[in-house]
Design a protein around this nucleic acid. Sequence first.
DNA 1: ATCATTTCTTGATTTGAATCAAGATTTTTT
DNA 2: AAAAAATCTTGATTCAAATCAAGAAATGAT
Lengths: 193, 193
Amino acid sequence: MEKHLLLKELQSKHDFSEADFEKLLPLFEERNYKKNEMIFKAGDVVKYVFFILKGCFRQFYINANGMERTIYIMEEGRWTGESLSFMNEIPTNMNLQALEDCKVLAMTKPKWEYAIRNIPEYALYHMKNHQRMIAWLKEQLGAAVTEKPDELYRRLLNETPHLLQRLPQYEIAKYLGVTPETLSRIRKRNTRL
Amino acid sequence: MEKHLLLKELQSKHDFSEADFEKLLPLFEERNYKKNEMIFKAGDVVKYVFFILKGCFRQFYINANGMERTIYIMEEGRWTGESLSFMNEIPTNMNLQALEDCKVLAMTKPKWEYAIRNIPEYALYHMKNHQRMIAWLKEQLGAAVTEKPDELYRRLLNETPHLLQRLPQYEIAKYLGVTPETLSRIRKRNTRL
DNA sequence: ATCATTTCTTGATTTGAATCAAGATTTTTT
DNA sequence: AAAAAATCTTGATTCAAATCAAGAAATGAT
């Protein structure tokens, strides 16, 4: 029997036992989202934390003039959600959308609190995950402003080349923070291997 | 006797008892940094987590071409450091510099681990703090790309007006991600109340 | 297979910030 | 108080990406 995607993720980042996994897994419920469906919008209180079993999501920000920017794209085997809103039951300023038909494991706040209190290794895994996220966001913020679009594209090509196959170009453009026209030109410039 | 700055911060974000504070405080040592001193640089392993008692710091990113971008500026009553590097004893990709003569409370990793294990409320406070930081960074990233520099300046003017008094303009410029010349023009445009 | 829709490419033009280059002003040092 | 250094302002020019505007190509529907 194949190892569960969630167990794989937990063990890849932390020393997580199968016994703890047996306690954790039943706390989730399975949910499905259709392509382009909005999971939450700015102003909503986020009701679940999500572990992605199939498909991918984008989390994005919309400013006062309606300009949007994709903050990250998460695929299967990763978490998504918005923990500040989720934990404190306050409105989020982010938006989450399914980019494909998706299947997730979703956990509500009472069950999540139970998990944090009763599965110490889950709390520790969680802390590590947050640290990683903070470091990643700081680097993204640094890179977003100091790097030229061509360089940002090459980074993506290096770090997550499969995303360029998986997603339409206008989604990549929103992620890089350029217009689709500019991305088209970047690709032309960078195609001559 | 006045309430300790650290206790104030802990209680403002979490239900933190004075008894727990008595256990936490001795784990720190006081350290001083001179204006412009580098606390750590990209490639270093970060040895402490810092709570700022006096002064302010900037954390910044330097890209491959030497372009730099200030990620955040932290003042007294706030934390700084780089927890991914600190916790995992791996090199950081960030730089931390004192912008004034500073005094901090610094905690080493063994003591921090002791605190996390033995003062559960500190672990919870810590988790909340991380969530807040993630939400803030996501918003910063969204805003950095979607907003025009004038709007970013007005945000700063709204959210942390005292920083504009406290710091030279070229530091504000690095934080906003524009050149000092551009900031000078932005200020001119936005000064007519 | 054809038509319609969505996505991508290419060119021309506009726009806003970076860069380059002096000066002016403020702060620090002596 | 004068001199030196650091910081800030202003103007002219350059440059890169956004915008505007068609078309071309790919995808999906009938």
